[in-house]
């Protein structure tokens, strides 16, 4: 309970309350307020294959067998993959690493080594010994070793930013007993068991005619139940799906960007608010026209994070255009 003094102080400025706050850092700034009850719930589980190779020995790495990513979208092994990177993770088992990769909670202190190889988009093979970082190559005899202390994770990624854009992956397990020196990257489809519950959420009521000032400072958890990475949210997307139901979207969650009739985006520099009126059509660039449609369908809204380890939207909800807001 607030003290009387503070309460009186707030009363004194009641006329200006729309512009300031009285001790509450979560003062909303919009007419459409997102809450945790609006957010979808997801379940993600990764099955990462293991390739056992000879410890302390160079190996051939080839990725020509990659034809799709972990979301089962098509991937060209030559055109779409920019980086092959090897993470050496200390103190975590393969199972623990799998869990942290699935929920995007890997910390930098977990990573005791990182080397990578930028592809030339023509060949699909390299040598383990070709991986380097800041000009320093991997020292295979001392750094690719059989040890309970280390887990090795090989990533094949779009983009070259460490830890981002992985399309498929495999654990490497150095073993003194293995004669194998060939690493064939597995294709991605089938590794990720991902489900989303869009049916249980509370639909987000928005005014049909605007304004549409969206405010998400009230949410506490992302779809996986983790803390919201507010300062990494860099996009808002609003999608309309003609003749599709919420159940349809739930069933095709990996394709949610592909099956939209219209998808409107806002690129954010930061912050916790966005005006949907500034969204533009991803294909045509036209400004968001509002929620009036002649055909039936479903409206979806997502808060996205292009630089997060986990590419799933931080928030995804179903919009219910109505006379009022929240």
């Amino acid at each position: 309970m607030r003290s009387g003094n503070v309460h009186l102080a707030c009363l004194a400025v009641a006329g200006l309350a729309l512009l300031t706050s009285c001790g509450d850092a979560t003062q909303s700034q919009g007419n459409i307020l997102l809450k945790d009850e609006n957010n979808y719930r997801t379940m993600a589980d990764l099955t990462i294959p293991v390739v056992v190779t000879t410890a302390a020995t160079d190996a051939d790495i080839c990725w020509s067998a990659i034809v799709d990513d972990i979301q089962c979208h098509p991937v060209s092994a030559t055109a779409d993959l920019d980086n092959v990177s090897l993470l050496r993770i200390a103190h975590l088992s393969q199972d623990q690493v799998r869990g942290r990769v699935a929920d995007g909670s890997l910390s930098q202190s977990d990573v005791s080594g990182y080397v990578d190889f930028q592809t030339d988009h023509t060949t699909t093979c390299t040598k383990l010994s070709s991986l380097s970082f800041f000009g320093t190559v991997i020292d295979i005899p001392s750094q690719y070793i059989e040890s309970d202390d280390y887990t090795y994770l090989l990533l094949f990624s779009k983009g070259t930013t460490p830890g981002l854009g992985a399309r498929t992956m495999t654990f490497l397990q150095p073993s003194a007993n293995s004669p194998n020196t060939k690493i064939d990257a597995p294709t991605g489809c089938g590794m990720l068991d991902f489900s989303a519950d869009l049916m249980s959420l509370t639909k987000l009521s928005v005014p049909s005619d605007g304004p549409w000032l969206l405010d998400w400072r009230g949410i506490k958890r992302d779809g996986q139940g983790n803390e919201v990475p507010f300062q990494k949210i860099d996009g808002v997307s609003v999608g309309f799906y003609a003749n599709l139901t919420v159940a349809d979207l739930q069933a095709r969650i990996f394709d949610i960007e592909l099956i939209a009739t219209n998808l409107y985006d806002i690129k954010l520099p930061g912050g916790r608010t966005a005006d949907l009126a500034t969204a533009t059509d991803r294909k045509t660039g036209e400004t968001f026209p509002g929620f009036a449609r002649t055909e039936t369908g479903t409206w979806m809204l997502a808060l996205t994070c292009s630089k997060c380890q986990n590419p799933a939207p931080v928030l995804l909800t179903i919009i219910e255009p109505s006379a009022g807001g929240t």
């Binding site: 706050s21 003062q27 990475p229 300062q231 949210i233 860099d234 954010l268 930061g270 912050g271 630089k307």
Partner: peptide
Amino acid sequence: ATILTGPLPVGLPG
């Protein structure tokens, strides 16, 4: 008096 500070830009580490 009071003023509301702005948000951090996207891209800074968690």
